[in-house]
């Protein structure tokens, strides 16, 4: 579905991505893991058309979309980003937040709103509340629900577990699996490597602008070097 080839991005003189290549097959959950500054967010932002790559190609459903640098066109093609730190609209109601997610669509939204509410019943209870008054977990639900309103084929999520309690994080990952079952391909980036690898079908490890490892979620989960670098020895609590 999505194929990235030799993608390079510069911020001024700094090379954020030094030529990465990876693939996201249709219907799968793929994750990019890595430490701060590895270039995970930059990768998603480049795919979403929010920043312009220096070189390389991004193919989505056979079309090269790397040259567009037009976020609206890319949302229109079926790629939606759940940005890092949720970034819901604080002074708009939950319902308005959802409607903005479907901004480019011209058809009726009733069924999609119902679909989001059935995934997140909590949002329905709070549909008239301002986004800024929700708790962190609810805001993350809203951010995911808002992205789903665009009816994406590929949902990209930037650190959905950021700043959330472990129990909430587990709930969010359950939802990610549920959304994936409904037919949405997911590209997930995470610092919480443990949770991400358990959820993903396939995973890539990023280090300072490069992809250094790849494998299925389970392979990487049991890999001793990955364990050491990203998972620690924290498996007791599971």
């Amino acid at each position: 579905m999505l194929k990235v080839e030799n993608l390079q991005v510069n911020y001024g003189g700094i090379e954020a991505l030094k030529g990465i290549s990876f693939e996201v097959p249709t219907g799968k959950i793929v994750t990019l893991i890595g430490a701060n500054g590895a270039g995970k967010t930059t990768t998603l932002r480049a795919i979403a058309g929010l920043i312009k790559p220096k070189a390389g190609a991004i193919h989505f459903e056979e079309a090269n979309i790397s040259g567009t640098h037009d976020a609206a066109a890319i949302v229109g093609r079926g790629i939606t980003l759940v940005p890092e730190g949720r970034r819901i609209f604080p002074d708009m109601t939950v319902l308005e937040n959802l409607k903005i997610g479907a901004y480019l669509r011209k058809d009726k939204l009733v069924r999609d709103i119902e679909r989001v509410y059935s995934l997140f019943p909590r949002l329905e209870e709070r549909s008239w509340q301002l986004g800024g008054t929700l708790s962190g977990g609810e805001q993350q639900m809203l951010a995911v629900g808002r992205a789903l309103m665009a009816n994406p084929k590929l949902l990209m999520m930037d650190e959905p577990s950021l700043g959330l309690a472990p129990l909430i994080v587990r709930g969010i990952f359950d939802i990610i699996r549920e959304i994936n079952k409904q037919g949405v391909t997911v590209l997930l980036i995470e610092q919480n490597a443990n949770m991400a690898l358990k959820t993903a079908d396939f995973a890539y490890v990023m280090e300072t602008g490069r992809i250094t490892r790849s494998g299925t979620g389970n392979e990487l989960l049991n890999d001793p070097t990955i364990k050491e670098a990203y998972l620690g020895t924290m498996n007791e609590d599971d």
Partner: peptide, 20 residues
């Protein structure tokens, strides 16, 4: 109007939602 308010609240998120 909703798009205007989205821009006011958060430009980056609005852009990510496809608001030009």
């Amino acid at each position: 109007g909703r798009a205007f308010r989205a821009i006011r609240d958060d430009e980056i998120a609005a852009e990510a939602m496809g608001v030009n």
